[in-house]
Amino acid sequence: MIPAAFDYVRAGSAEEAIALIGEHGEDAKFLAGGHSLLPLMKLRLAQPSVLVDIGRVEDLSYIRDAGDHIAIGALTRHMDVEKSPLLAEHVPLLAHAAGHVGDPQVRHRGTMGGTIAHADPASDLPATTLALGATYVAQGPNGTREIAAADFYQGFLESALAADEMLTEIRVPKMGGAGWSFQKFNRRAQDWAIVGVAAWRRNGDSGVALVNMGSTPILATSVSGALAQGASVSDAAQLAAEEAEPQSDLNASPEYRVHLAKVLVRRALEQASA
């Protein structure tokens, strides 16, 4: 509960943060809301030598209408995503899912960019933005680049971000009135999902992503493919775990996870189709 010694520097802007990370090298970490990093440090499972605090970079906290998508600044708190009228109108799935992250304390401190960059397969918003076909904007010493959510998650807690890159914006396509559902199955409201499903459906199109069904958030492309070819919801749901590589933990064996994924995908699609 007492972290190892570390240095702390505060950045006033994204540029300064990137310069500081570059200066301090591989053992440096960005600190935003701190709700994933600090618990790991307190358990001494993470021992960064320097924390670059980006929590005060004010121009990264926003939710804007950008035409065909909504742009969300990386430092936007989960609570602001949950309560955003703009998201409620155009991306209600994301606003709803943000309301299921952790508990109220976590939602007031944790940030959208932090949870995406942390790339935890058990977190709600990586999978939700993946289902929605989001694009992430990364800024590095040489400028910015866009990374599709489908290309972003590369392994357990591993993303496509370079060590000196910082996630600055999340761009989520407007849902255009699509039906949607977010299914979070857990034993306590505050917990990570044992299995979660974010899904939307509009005419023949759909997006289905799974929480905690592998080392990364999983896009259930087989389900969407089957739906596009006219499969029934219950038949498509049987393909829920085709892309998954579920792990075992105290809450669920891989077999139980696969079973849950099928049940929850079916329920999600039923709700999204209603």
Binding site: D103, R188, A189, Q190, D191
Partner: peptide, 14 residues
Amino acid sequence: SGTLAEYLVPAASD
């Protein structure tokens, strides 16, 4: 179940 993330003490909402 070495932390309160794995040892499930229920909260009021549960």
